[in-house]
């Protein structure tokens, strides 16, 4: 997994609550057996005017000019600013894969769906949680200043806006460390291999049918 320490870049403002993973990456692209290449299909149903299918040349499809990510001002955005309950719905890890492949390594929202939130940390994406009123302020700043950039600093746990406002955010120290180090969970867990084996042998006495 790639490390995440900080990001500075253009902020795209997607002003909608409850954005589900079916919107982030529609079902037809889940047929892929790879982890990469989902970027052109991020928000596919909103982003393009036609119906997309795997294998198409997506660069030739007609873009929906009304969709915010297609606006000139947000090209090259690295940070996605959005609303409550982002990533609700399915457990598809293709959602963070698509966000990352598109270029978003940081999301800022008041809240996230549990599975999506968890999936971000496995892929080097930092989901920043701020209070609703702070997110309101950030939306105001981004919408009123074209080319607005934020700097998100994970070690310092801060979001700094173009006009110098600094917002602190909370993060679980383990998840923070895994992002900073780009650590592989499996390797860490296997350090507890003996404990897992002991658990299994003890447990097999209580619920032997589970281990049949």
């Amino acid at each position: 997994m790639q490390k995440f320490t900080n990001v500075k870049g253009i902020v795209a403002a997607l002003d909608q609550a409850n954005i589900d993973t079916d919107q982030i990456i529609p079902k037809q692209y889940l047929k892929s057996i790879k982890r990469t290449g989902f970027g052109p299909n991020l928000f596919d149903d909103w982003r393009y005017l036609d119906k997309g299918e795997p294998g198409m040349d997506h660069s030739k499809r007609k873009l929906n000019p009304d969709f915010v990510l297609n606006h000139d001002r947000y090209q090259g955005a690295k940070i996605l600013l959005t609303r409550e309950n982002f990533g609700c719905g399915s457990s598809r890890e293709h959602a963070p894969w698509a966000l990352l492949d598109y270029g978003f390594s940081c999301i800022i929202a008041p809240s996230y769906a549990d599975i999506f939130f968890n999936n971000c940390f496995k892929n080097g994406i930092l989901p920043v949680t701020l209070d609703s009123h702070q997110v309101d302020e950030l939306f105001d700043e981004v919408l009123n200043h074209e080319g607005c950039q934020f700097e998100v600093d994970l070690p310092a746990q801060t979001v700094t806006t173009d006009n110098g406002q600094i917002y602190s955010f909370q993060i679980n120290p383990t998840q923070k460390n895994r992002l900073l180090e780009g650590l592989d969970d499996i390797g860490i867990t296997l350090q507890q291999a003996e404990k897992i084996k002991t658990y299994e042998s003890e447990r097999a006495k209580i619920t032997p049918w589970v281990f049949n």
């Binding site: 982890r35 399915s90 457990s91 598809r92 890890e93 963070p96 599975i115 968890n118 999936n119 496995k122 892929n123 969970d185 499996i186 867990t189």
Partner: peptide, 10 residues
């Protein structure tokens, strides 16, 4: 409960 693909691997 449901999990993502990284957790499936884990």
């Amino acid at each position: 409960f449901g999990i993502g693909t990284s957790d499936v691997e884990h």
